[in-house]
Nucleic acid binder design. Structure first.
Lengths: 206, 206
DNA sequence: GTCAATCTGTGATAGAATGCACAAACGATT
DNA sequence: AATCGTTTGTGCATTCTATCACAGATTGAC
């Protein structure tokens, strides 16, 4: 076990965690790799093999205790604690992110939001006062921000990224439609809905 | 060429298209698989092989004509035309999607938005009047909507999906944190920022 | 015209991910 | 205690993916 687990496996763990949280909420005490797989559209063998990278969590003949496996996955993914998040950019997207109710319950707390527009700086968004971009590095450090969500235009994204990294952030959720250049120790995940749309339109031919 | 191209290859084409659009805007007339790869963090060989599934678009010794390759990729992905989109759910997320300026220029036009809340129905969002959920199937058909973006709570997502499919939609961008069950001919792409965040937190273990 | 430098497209190869299938283990039932 | 149905964890085979490396084509310099 635990000998540099493939990134593609890590990417599936949050899906397992989400399904388990759902089962737990529904009061299901025990599940199986088959049930999980059916719910996620993933083969049961794959789920068992993925989990085996980290240990043995089930019982033969029975399956998995839902709360126990959820706890273990949360521990593995390091989401058995809270994380501090900054939103960069207070346009439509930034405001939606700052106001999104789905982050808090899953342990991600938006503590601060930045923008460069003088008309927006100082206004309130979801209980947060918009801070000026110039104060970003100090603010990020002072508040011990660990994750940044970048919601600025493509043209500004790289320079904003450089400052976010200077502020000590090591994980970036990037909504800008460009590839960000970051040091090796910084992780980036990209979200661009248009990319997903174009992926689907390929199959809509005819 | 064209003998059932792997889906993973299709998924990269929008990235190539995005990079080419950027180069074209910057007035770069010619590029190479090396330059594209450097910009995207993908090996040049991979780009050449991906493109080779669809034909020969470059010239040896020279590279690729940016406008020509962009056109060809747009044609392959079927984004050399416009698409009609519906947003389902007029909460924070639905409103952000309906107001997002990044869809139109890339050929995706939000024509209608639905919600079930009587207080929201009839209000205006980004120039659109919110329609009631009951009228969904007829409205989707009447407007020939091709793509739906689902931005409703998890509990409502599956029943909404069933109606969207009944309305003739064959592609769904799903923001709800559950796996949607759809007929084979319907395509689904999921977006859940929390999944991406949890993917990164794994690596933030110190 | 010749040569060096460059770049594409692709066959071959190495590598990674997935699915299969079974031994071992467990609980329920008789 | 014996049996049956179920489920895990895993070695193995298969399939899928990515990379290597080179022939052939093109350009530009001299």
């Amino acid at each position: 076990m635990s000998d540099s687990v493939p990134d593609i496996v890590i990417g599936r763990l949050p899906l397992y965690l989400r399904a388990l949280a759902r089962l737990e909420q529904d009061g299901v005490p025990i599940t199986s790799s088959h049930e999980l797989g059916a719910q996620l559209g993933i083969s049961s063998a794959q789920i068992r093999k993925d989990l085996s990278h980290f240990g043995e969590f089930g019982k033969q003949g029975t399956g998995y205790q839902v709360p126990y496996l959820r706890e273990q996955l949360a521990r593995i993914l390091c989401v058995d604690r809270d994380w501090t998040v900054a939103v960069i950019g207070a346009g439509h997207l930034g405001r939606a992110l700052a106001g999104y109710k789905g982050f808090g319950p899953r342990g991600f707390h938006v503590d601060v939001i930045f923008d460069n527009d003088p008309d927006i700086i100082g206004t309130q968004i979801g209980g947060l006062v918009v801070k000026p971009g110039e104060s970003m590095v100090e603010e990020l450090r002072a508040r011990r921000i660990e994750i940044a969500m970048i919601a600025v235009p493509a043209a500004a994204a790289q320079s904003v990224t450089d400052r976010v990294v200077a502020g000590g952030v090591r994980a970036i959720l990037n909504y800008a439609p460009i590839r960000l250049v970051v040091p090796d120790y910084v992780h980036v995940q990209d979200i661009d809905p248009v990319i997903h749309l174009q992926h689907m339109t390929y199959y809509l031919r005819t």
